[in-house]
Nucleic acid binder design. Structure first.
Length: 468
RNA sequence: GCGGGUGUCGUAUAAUGGCCAUUACCUCAGGUUUCCAACCUGAUGACAGGGGUUCGAUUCCCCUCACCCGCUCCA
């Protein structure tokens, strides 16, 4: 059953809190803007997505290695990457209309060349020219917005050096490139993968966990011979599509693969495709894929004075590889997966009408792919008494021992317990009933179809495994 | 950061310048229940925070914080 987009976010945010997926952070202090806690189920879901990704793209491929680099790196890294120069915007506000503009854009519109000017120099130019807003109003004092979080490394602030929290994980793969090239015996093409946190001092965060100042990325830098870049780009585009549809089980018509035209691309990028998902609040970026050419390694070679070229043993040539960068937002994937699979349908109730048919009630269900579900199975005794609970508890313990995430629940009616599991996306419920005592079988109830079959208790673990 | 709007148990809500702040769902405990939110009994749980006016403030005023919408930004 379709849920209207306006209602969907509200339903999702309240379900996320009620069922322990995502809570407002610092809730006991009244909350902290745009910071969220992943609760027990949210953490499981996020970890499952991350692990599925790592298994598929790192363990599953011969041409890939993984790294884990620090959030705070040498400040030179951000000079070389260009983030220090371009990841900051000078903003001014029209005092009358309260609209905001970029100071450099206003100056350029006046025919004033701002290239290479510092923030202070731009402010001086603006004063000189008596700069007004496009509506002809007085402007407020310009302010500098740096998208990178600044911090200090050292015991006291005055003697310490300034450092930055990484605004993306990619840089770590470039700084580790030389060591990996020299130690891992890989041949081009090959890639380096990393999962980790990145930080951006966004001016406008919002939409639940969609845009936050602290977020997680899963990124790959795939190094290729320059002439092989276009085909590597196509290969990764295919991989991204397959991930979205085969692993996340997102409907093809909920995703757009948007080719970014020349004019809108970053100057170093030869080709960029944005992968956009139809969130309830609009079509927004989920993933990105870019051909970054030799920009990053060239920059780091220049700033570090290290030779970062690749030596081709066949042709005896040295060159800087091109980089294809597929980039996945992990936090955004969690949100997209929740949006995609949250559903309301009809379930029968215990009330049976005169014609023998059951009355129907709306049911909220998260149709997560089983491999991503926070809880794989619930074990439910039909009754607490007559020893059924003990049998169930024992079965749950056995499943846990075989490394499955399971829950045991004996509280309330059986229907109520099914619905609880539906809301957190548990694909299967195993019910211990009176027949179990006679023949050692339990029923399996399917989350989506709500149908049941009987299997032997000792087969439960294998039954689940074969379906993950 | 600016403009506008909104803040009452976990969720949805009612009322009030003066008695333990209402109700439903959820949650928990007990009972009941032989497969889909049933029922009975009971329990926990809120006036976003701070200050002011007042004999007395959840209610009126101020500040802060948070949330929603819009703007600027998202190489």
């Amino acid at each position: 059953m379709a849920i209207s987009p306006e209602k969907k976010m509200d339903l999702l945010v309240s379900l996320a809190k009620r069922r322990g997926f995502v809570y407002p952070d610092s809730d006991i202090y009244g909350g902290f803007a745009n910071a969220w806690d992943y609760g027990p189920y949210g953490t499981e879901l996020k970890n499952n997505i991350r692990d599925a990704w790592w298994k598929r793209f790192v363990h599953g491929r011969e041409d890939m290695v993984g790294v884990d680099t620090p959030v705070i790196q040498h400040p030179k890294v951000w000079e070389a990457s260009g983030h220090l120069a371009t990841f900051s915007d000078p903003l001014v506000e029209d005092k009358k209309t309260h609209k905001r503009y970029r100071l450099d854009h206003l100056l350029e519109a006046q025919g004033i060349d701002v290239s290479g000017l510092s923030f202070e120099q731009m402010v001086a130019k603006a004063d000189e020219a008596g700069l007004k807003s496009p509506d002809g109003n007085v402007l407020a004092e310009p302010k500098q917005f740096n998208l990178m979080f600044k911090t200090f490394v050292g015991v006291s602030e005055d003697t310490a050096s300034v450092a930055y929290l990484r605004p993306e994980t990619a840089a770590g793969m470039f700084t580790a490139w030389k060591d990996i090239r020299d130690t891992m015996r890989k041949k081009l093409p090959f890639g380096i993968a990393q999962v980790g946190r990145a930080f951006r001092n966004e001016i406008t965060p919002g939409n639940f966990i969609f845009r936050t100042r602290e977020f997680e990325q899963m990124e790959i830098e795939y190094f290729v011979k320059p002439e092989e870049a276009p085909q590597a780009f196509e290969m990764w585009l295919g991989e991204m599509k397959s991930w979205v549809h085969d692993v996340l089980n997102i409907r093809p018509d909920h995703v757009e693969y948007k080719e970014i035209p020349d004019a809108d691309r970053a100057f170093y990028s030869a080709r960029t495709i944005d992968v956009e998902y139809h969130y309830p609040f609009g079509q927004k970026e989920l993933y990105g894929l870019a051909n970054r050419t030799d920009y990053d390694l060239s920059q780091h070679q220049k700033f570090s004075n290290e030779d970062l070229r690749w030596f081709d043993a066949d042709t005896k040539e040295r060159f800087i590889p091109y980089v294809i960068e597929p980039s996945w937002g992990l936090s955004r994937t969690v949100l997209a997966v929740l949006c995609e699979h949250l559903d309301i349908d009809e379930a029968p109730t215990a009330d049976v009408g005169a014609d023998g048919s059951s009355a129907q009630e709306p049911r909220m269900v998260l149709r997560l792919p089983p491999a991503l579900a926070p809880v794989k199975a619930a074990v439910l005794p039909l009754q607490k008494k007559d020893g059924l609970a003990e049998i169930g508890r024992e079965l749950a313990a056995k499943l846990r021992a075989s490394a499955l995430v399971v829950e045991f629940d004996e509280g309330g009616s059986i229907g109520k317990r099914y619905r609880r599991q539906d809301e957190i996306g548990t694909p299967w419920c195993f019910t211990v009933d009176y027949q179990t005592k006679e023949d050692g079988t339990v029923t399996v109830r399917d989350r989506d179809a709500m149908t049941q079959e009987r299997i032997k208790m000792e087969e439960v673990s294998g039954w689940i495994r074969s379906r993950l």
